[in-house]
């Protein structure tokens, strides 16, 4: 829980940094999301006090934008691109394959909290379609048959 204590100190620093700027809420939420991978409820409550805005206002914003999450992330986030270029290159079959391997549907995490599967829209590498991204690493021109190997790399890392 070290990380969390640290963030709470940070939170005040963060608010101080942004306090004088108008329309700062989204940028502060971005910073929080970057640290935790989601926006924890107690952080929102604190933030509401520090910024002196109602909690409802904060939740109104969090829930509107896809980028902000309310649930803690899995260890590895698997994001398959379903933008137009990837869709035409049959990205749907990649999703099916991952769902089959991990026994989860899009938007869900595996029971052991290892993987989370997301479907996203365009990672900006359409020239390499179909594209998927695990955490920060982008995989281009992915073949269905390669997925098992790619995923198992992450499992092995853990062992």
């Amino acid at each position: 829980m070290v990380k969390k204590d640290k963030l709470q100190a940070d939170l005040e620093g963060l608010v101080k940094k942004w306090k004088d700027k108008k329309g700062n809420l989204i940028m502060i939420l971005h910073s929080i999301e970057n640290i935790y991978g989601y926006v924890p409820r107690d952080t929102s409550i604190k933030l509401s006090r520090l910024l002196d805005v109602p909690l409802a206002r904060i939740y109104e914003v969090i829930t509107f934008y896809n980028y902000f999450k309310l649930e803690p992330p899995a260890k590895h986030n698997v994001a398959v691109c379903m933008g137009t270029a990837c869709y035409l290159k049959n990205a749907a079959s990649l999703i099916e394959e991952i769902e089959k391997i991990l026994h989860i549907k899009e938007g869900q995490s595996t029971k052991d909290g290892m993987f989370h599967l997301d479907v996203v829209r365009c990672l900006g590498c359409c020239g390499l379609a179909p594209v998927m991204m695990i955490d920060e690493k982008v995989y281009g021109k992915v073949k269905k048959s390669e997925i098992v190997d790619i995923l198992s790399k992450y499992v092995k890392e853990e062992e």
Binding site: G23, L25, I26, H30, V61, F64, Y65, Y67, R121
Partner: peptide
């Protein structure tokens, strides 16, 4: 200022709302 994953925020009035720190409608 960063977007946060909402296509409608490319529309100019929503984009403005978003910079203002609000829902991008």
């Amino acid at each position: 200022r960063l977007g946060a994953g909402a296509f409608v925020c490319g529309e100019e009035t929503s984009l403005i709302a978003s910079i203002e720190g609000k829902r991008g409608t």
